[in-house]
Amino acid sequence: MSSAIVELNDVIKDYPLGKLTVHAVRGVSIRIEKGEFTAIAGPSGSGKTTILNLIGCVDVPTSGKVSVAGSLTNDLGDRALTALRLHKLGFIFQSFNLIGVLNVFQNVEFPLLLQGGMSKGERAKRVDRIVEEVGLTAHVKHRPNELSGGQRQRVAIARALVTNPAIILADEPTANIDSATGHSIIELMKQINDEQKTTFIFSTHDQKVMEQARRIILLKDGVVVDDNAQNGDGQASGAAGEKLSGTDEVEE
């Protein structure tokens, strides 16, 4: 078996909420190998986003260990976590989260500028290639408010891809777009996963999206209730899919 690119070991995450404590994740252990195309599924409040935040190094666990791309994040300070996010991770957000004042090219180029060390020509070449891959060459000078939801999410994918990250994390990437566009977005992600072997981890509570995943980790109340990693058929039609179809899908 290859080495895990993401490993969560008995992770607990609690949030204070006034005088109460919300137990968002209760002792989750997950191991994701390089090149996997994994969906973290579950109803609203099940802990999907929290797990993604922990893997994405934008949050730290209350207890347990989180290892990302060979680094144990518990031991890292803000600078190291920022560097890890910049060089090893790519993010796709539910609400696209593009920088409104930058055009498509500039949004995609932005992480490369933060990384530094690349000439203007090299950056332009890389951005043009990625923009072409996501089919937005014609819109390269457009700003986000001039694009449809699907196009914006493609820009977000391009921005996540441009640094060649080891892992791309997508939080409900199809939640704010219509189902046909959502399907095409997941197909695009899948294609990139096939071609570039980039590890994709995305959260969803949409049955159709989940069916496109090769592995489904099903959460409920902060606990993993099913993981079809051992199914071996690469489809999400196993027990996890069936279990989710029985849950109440509440918008998160």
């Binding site: 934008v58 920022t82 560097a83 996010r85 993010f91 957000f93 920088i99 409104g100 932005f110 933060l114």
Partner: peptide, 16 residues
């Protein structure tokens, strides 16, 4: 604030 969260997640440092 949301934009700030995004750019921080992407890899922008506090100093930046």
């Amino acid at each position: 604030t949301r934009e700030l969260g995004t750019v921080r997640a992407i890899g922008m440092s506090k100093r930046q």
